[in-house]
Computed example of a mutant assay.
Amino acid sequence: MYEAEQIVSMIEELNSVSTFHRWRKLAEECCDISFQKKTKQVGTTSYTKYYLFSDSDIENFRKVAILRNKGHPIREAVIKTFEVVAVPDPLPEQNKQLIDNLIQAVAVMNIEVQKLLKLSMNYERQSHLSTQKVYQLEQQIQELEAGKMDKPFQRKKA
């Protein structure tokens, strides 16, 4: 297992440790791989982390350096080198089917929501009309009672 400083000295195309760490970080982000980390105590209460790399990692970084010197962009070189050829996973197909089912379910729910919104608006309109009708009836009752009060005692003629 090698540390970053040792790898920089082993690969002629690498100029500095910071360049190497940039490549390492790019490999971790783009290719979803991770390198072994260790921590060591630096002072009485402080620790630092450092990465350890295997011989195959060194060989991969050599390939990245060679591709980089040939004019490939660094991202492309890292992806070509560290990309693992994987067996096609049936999970994406299942995920696609689940997503399609969810899309259909959401479409059906949207239609139902539209229907419920129409019903709600209809009920609100009916409620408003009922409130107006009640107000009109109250006005009519008040007018009738006010008219009755003007003639409190009248006899019916037989």
Rank of each mutant, 00 (worst) to 15 (best):
F61I: 05
P73G: 03
P88N: 09
Q36V: 14
L52I: 06
K96Y: 09
E93A: 14
M109F: 08
Q140D: 13
R22L: 05
S46I: 01
Q36T: 10
L52Q: 04
T44P: 11
C30M: 13
S130Q: 13
H128Y: 13
L119W: 03
K25T: 10
V64I: 05
P92G: 00
D100Q: 15
V106N: 12
Q41G: 05
G71A: 01
V108N: 05
Y123G: 05
Q6H: 05
K38M: 04
Q6E: 15
K115D: 13
N101V: 09
E143K: 13
E12G: 10
M10I: 07
K156H: 07
P92T: 08
S16G: 02
L67R: 10
C31F: 06
H21Q: 11
I74Q: 08
Q114F: 08
E59C: 03
G147I: 06
F20L: 12
V8H: 00
I103P: 00
L116C: 07
S56H: 12
D55M: 06
L137Q: 10
Q139F: 02
E29A: 11
L129Q: 15
K38A: 01
E143W: 07
M121V: 04
A65I: 07
L102V: 04
Q114I: 08
A27R: 02
L102P: 00
S34R: 14
V17I: 15
T19P: 01
M109Q: 15
L137E: 10
K118S: 09
K80C: 11
K151D: 12
Q94V: 15
E124H: 12
L137Y: 07
L117R: 14
N101F: 07
A86R: 15
E13S: 12
L117Y: 09
L116I: 06
P73F: 04
K38G: 00
L52P: 00
G43I: 02
Q114Y: 08
L129A: 06
L144K: 12
G43N: 09
P90H: 11
N110A: 07
K25R: 15
N122M: 06
I74A: 10
R155H: 07
G71D: 04
Y51K: 04
E93M: 15
T48D: 08
E145Y: 04
K37Y: 03
R125N: 08
V106K: 12
D89Q: 13
N101C: 05
Q104R: 10
F61M: 07
K70Q: 15
K148T: 11
K70T: 07
L117F: 04
K38N: 08
I11K: 05
C30W: 02
Q136F: 12
L129H: 12
G43L: 03
K151I: 13
D57L: 03
E93P: 00
V113N: 11
N95T: 09
H21W: 08
R75S: 15
A86L: 07
E3N: 11
K49P: 03
I111N: 06
A27Y: 01
F35M: 02
K151A: 10
Q6M: 00
V134N: 07
R22Y: 14
A77T: 02
